[in-house]
Amino acid sequence: MLHQFYPQVFHSYSYELNKDMQISAAHYIPHEKAGKCARVHGHTYFVNLTICGDQLDDSGFLVNFQHLKKWVHDRFDHTLLNDHTDVFNGQNSEDFPTTEVVARKIWEIVQDHLNVLPNKPKCLQVFVRETPTSYVVYRPKREMK
């Protein structure tokens, strides 16, 4: 069982859900400045999603944990991330499968699914640990009103 602490996102929502997952995947960074990361190599990524909202759905969930696993873990586990050309590509650095981009792309995937739910939960943070000593947190910018 994973027992990790993640950076907190301060918010005013009534419910906060966190889902941990492990994803074993390979990748490479298609750029000459990537050094040895330009070669295919693998990681066991530890991913945490923070999802918030004020209303539960008709089954009593903010979001069903099984859906989150399907959207992220089942899609990427035991794959070469670069092969997911609908998500990553080797032409634009904003789409290379770096840990930063992986975190952002996971947020985009999850939030796209959340947007169609009637209770409108929000993904506030995606935490991706690539190695025991390196991790990235992605939080979308809040819209200024």
Rank of each mutant, 00 (worst) to 15 (best):
N89W: 04
H73E: 13
I29Y: 05
L2M: 09
V102W: 03
F127W: 08
A34G: 09
N18P: 06
Q4M: 15
N18E: 11
S24F: 05
P97I: 02
L2R: 12
F96L: 07
N82L: 04
Q111W: 07
I106G: 00
K70C: 05
F76Y: 09
V128D: 02
V101E: 01
S134N: 15
V63F: 06
L68G: 05
L124I: 00
V128Q: 01
E143M: 10
Q55W: 09
H73I: 08
D112E: 10
P97Q: 07
L17F: 11
T133W: 08
C123V: 07
Y15D: 11
V63C: 04
T44G: 10
F10G: 03
P121G: 09
S59N: 15
S134D: 07
D95T: 08
Y135Q: 13
L17D: 08
V63I: 12
D86L: 12
L124W: 02
V126Q: 02
D86K: 07
V63Y: 08
P30H: 05
T133F: 12
D83E: 15
T133L: 13
H27S: 00
N48G: 05
H78C: 07
F76Q: 04
D112S: 13
N18S: 12
P140S: 05
N82C: 09
E32F: 15
D86P: 03
F96A: 06
H3D: 12
L62H: 03
I109E: 00
P7S: 13
E16F: 01
D54H: 11
L49I: 06
